[in-house]
Amino acid sequence: MTALGLDLRRVYGAYPTGVAVVAGLVGGRPAGIAASSFVPVSLDPPLVSVCVAHTSTTWPLLRERPTIGISVLGAHQEHVGRRVGARDGDRFAGVEWRATEGGSVLVEGASAWFDCVVEQQVRSGDHDIVVFRVEDLDAAHDVPPLVFHASTFRSLR
C-alpha cells in the first residue's frame, strides 16, 4: 500500500461508523459480508447503501439474490463482526440468524434489520456503491449499535 493509501486508511478511521452484516441464502446456507459503510440514503423511496470492494468473493454470490438482509450489529456483537468479516472459514459459525421467506439472512440480537432488494450498483474506485430498496425493517431501540473507529470495534455505552 502506498503512503497516501496508509494515510487515507488512518484518516478515514477517524470517522466512526456502524457495523452491518449484508447477507442472504446461497444454496440454502447463509453467505454474507461485514460492512462499515452502511448509510441511510432516502426516505421516499426507502433506500440504504453499502460499499463493497471489487475483491469481494462473496458479493458476486449475493448480488443476484431476490432479497438481501442487512443487520446493524449491536454493541455486544463484536464477535459477529469479526466472524462474518473473516476471509475464510464458515462466517456464520456460532452466529444466531434467521432467514426470511425471500431468502434474506438477518442476525439475531442486532440493533436494526432491513430486508432489501438491490436497486442500483455504481462502480466507484476500488469499490461498488450498492443501493438497496428497503422492503421491510425493524429495530431494537434498547440495543446500542456496534461502532468501528480507529481500526477497532467500540461501544457507545
Rank of each mutant, 00 (worst) to 15 (best):
P45A: 09
A140K: 02
V105N: 02
T67L: 09
S71A: 13
S42V: 14
A34V: 09
G81M: 02
G125V: 15
E101Q: 11
P144E: 02
G28T: 04
L73T: 07
G74E: 00
F132S: 01
F148K: 03
D128H: 11
V147C: 06
P45K: 09
P60F: 13
D90R: 03
W59K: 14
V143T: 14
Q121D: 04
S56G: 08
G102I: 12
P30F: 00
S124K: 11
H79E: 14
P66H: 08
V130I: 11
V130G: 09
F38M: 06
G89P: 06
G74M: 01
R91Y: 07
L47S: 03
H141W: 13
A75N: 04
V118S: 13
L106R: 01
V39L: 08
D136A: 13
R98Q: 14
V50Q: 00
S42A: 14
G85H: 07
E135Q: 15
E119D: 15
R82G: 04
A99T: 10
V117R: 14
D126Q: 04
V72C: 09
R123W: 13
L43W: 07
S71M: 05
V41N: 09
V50K: 00
S49Q: 06
L61E: 12
P30S: 05
S111Y: 04
P30M: 04
A34M: 10
V52L: 04
G28W: 02
P46C: 09
G69Q: 01
G89Q: 11
A35E: 08
